[in-house]
Design a protein around this nucleic acid. Structure first.
Lengths: 245, 245
DNA sequence: CGGTCTTTTGATTATATTCAACTTAAGTGG
DNA sequence: CCACTTAAGTTGAATATAATCAAAAGACCG
C-alpha cells in the first residue's frame, strides 16, 4: 500500500452488504492495492476498446458504465457505485467492452494488475469472489435486458428507481427514501432505451402521481411499494451480500 | 467419466475457436465430467429461481436462455449453442437468474458440481477460464442491451443475424451462408424486444431485399456485408478464441 | 380430416420519437 | 454587474414506429 485509505480502515468494510474480511483477506488486499486514483466529474476512467489492464474498486463517488455504437448512440450498461469492481475485462487480456466515466468526484482503489493472474494461483478464495461478482453482474445485465426489452416506458423508469434504491440503500446512501442520483435525464434515457423527451414526460407522470421528486441531484421516492408495482418487480427479492474486492 | 463421449474425443476440442487442451487439462476434464444428459426439444434444462447446483457444458444441440417477468413476459437472454457453459450461478450458491430450455435434441456434459469450489483451489488455470467465460458472456449481454436499447427493429433483426452467423460459423455449423436456426419467430421477437407481428414484418422486409431467407430451420444469409451495415456493427471484429470448459 | 401451432397479412391504435421552441440555471468575459 | 453563452430541463405538436387486434393460410400431427 502506498497512499490513501488503508484497507483495514476501508469504510466499505463496515457495510453489512459486504462479507466480513478475514485477517488473511485483509493482508492480501493491502498487498494487492497499490494506490488510489481521484477522478473529477465528467472524467474518463476506462475507455471502450482500450487494452490498458487497469483494475479498480470504487471507494467513493458515482459514475456510468456505457457502450457506444459505431454511429455514436450510447447505451448505459449500469450506474457505478462504491464497492463496484471495474476493469476486469482488460485485466483478463481483452479489450474493454464498455467505457466508465465519473459523474461525481470519485476515488478508486488501484490494484496491481500485473499479478492478477497470480490471484488465481495464490488466493483461490479471492478468485472465487471475483468470479462470483462477475456472475452477479451478468445476472443484473440479464435483468436490465429484460427491462429494456419487455417493459413500457413508465415501467422502465419505475424499475430503474426501485433498483437504484436497493443498491444505494445497501450502501447506506439512502436517507429516508431519498437517494443520490448524480445524473442527467439524458443518462436515464440512455439507460432505459428511451428518448430524452419521452423520459422527461414519463418522469413528469410519476411526479404528478406524487411517487418521485428529483431535486439537487437526489431522487426522493415517496412510495416504493407503488413504484415496485408499476415496475413489475418481485417485491420479495433482497440484495445479496457480496464479497468486497 | 461414466458414459458418453470421452473428453479426449470431444468433437468441440477440434474446433479452432477453442483453446487447445493441455494433457493436464484433459486429465482434469475427464475427472470433472461425470456423465451426459440428453434433453428433448422443448425440455427444460435449468429453471429460473432454482438452486439446484447443476453444471453443464453443451456438447450438441441448441436451446434458449431466458428470463420471465412476474407477469409472464419473456426476455430471451441468449441462444445456447455447443461449447456454452451453463448453470454457473447455481453452482456458486445462488439461484438461477434465468431458465434454459432445449429447442433441438441436446446433449450436455454433466460436471461434478460438489467440487466446483475445489476447482479454484486445485486448478487455478481452469478457474481463470471460468471467470474469463463469464466476463465474456457479460460483454455479450452488454452488446445485446445496446441492441435492444438503441437499435431500430430492422437493425435489431440484422444484428441478431450477424451475431448468429459469427457464433455458428466459429462452431463449424455454417454452410455457405446458411446457419441453423431452430427457433420460432416468437423466440426472435422475445430476444429483440419486439412483438411477434412486427418481427414477422421486419423479416419480410429483409426477405424482399434478398438479404435473408429462412427455410426448414435454417437461415440463409445472402449478403452479410449489407446485413452488417444495416445492423450498425463494426465489421472488423472477429470472434475471440476461448477456453472450453 | 380436425385440431393445434406457426406464420403471414391488413387495419387500427398506442406508444414513443422527432422537431422546435422556450425556460432556467450556471458560467464567462467585457 | 450585466450581456452572452452553454447545458439541462420542460412543453406542445407533428410524425414515425411498433403494438395490438383480427383473420386467414400453411404446416404438422394424430
Amino acid at each position: 500500500m502506498q497512499d490513501g485509505v488503508d484497507c483495514k480502515d476501508c469504510p466499505l468494510r463496515r457495510l453489512e452488504i459486504f462479507h466480513a474480511f478475514s485477517p488473511s483477506d485483509l493482508a492480501f488486499m493491502r498487498e494487492f492495492k497499490i494506490g488510489e486514483l481521484r477522478v473529477d466529474p465528467g472524467g474518463p476512467i476506462l475507455v471502450e476498446g482500450s487494452r490498458n489492464p487497469q483494475l479498480f474498486t470504487v471507494l467513493a463517488g458515482m459514475g456510468l458504465r456505457y457502450k457506444t455504437l459505431p454511429d455514436g448512440r450510447r447505451q448505459i450498461i449500469n450506474f457505478v457505485m462504491p464497492g463496484d469492481f471495474i476493469g476486469l475485462q482488460a485485466a483478463m487480456g481483452g479489450a474493454m467492452g464498455h467505457s466508465v466515466d465519473a459523474t461525481t468526484p470519485m476515488t478508486l482503489c488501484v490494484f496491481r494488475r500485473s499479478e492478477f493472474l497470480d490471484v488465481f494461483r495464490d488466493n483461490p478464495s479471492r478468485a472465487y469472489d471475483v468470479t462470483w461478482r462477475v456472475a452477479t453482474e451478468e445476472h443484473f445485465l440479464g435483468d436490465a435486458l429484460a427491462s429494456v426489452g419487455q417493459r413500457s416506458a413508465i415501467e422502465r423508469v419505475a424499475w430503474a428507481m426501485v433498483r437504484l434504491h436497493q443498491r444505494t440503500a445497501a450502501l447506506g446512501l439512502a436517507d429516508d427514501g431519498s437517494i443520490p442520483f448524480p445524473y442527467r435525464q439524458q443518462d436515464l434515457a440512455d439507460t432505459l432505451g428511451l428518448s430524452l423527451v419521452h423520459t422527461n414526460k414519463t418522469l413528469a407522470k410519476l411526479r404528478e402521481r406524487n411517487l418521485v421528486s428529483w431535486v439537487e441531484g437526489r431522487l426522493h421516492l415517496h412510495d416504493l411499494d407503488t413504484l415496485g408495482r408499476i415496475a413489475v418487480v418481485d417485491p420479495n427479492e433482497e440484495p445479496l451480500r457480496r464479497p468486497l474486492i
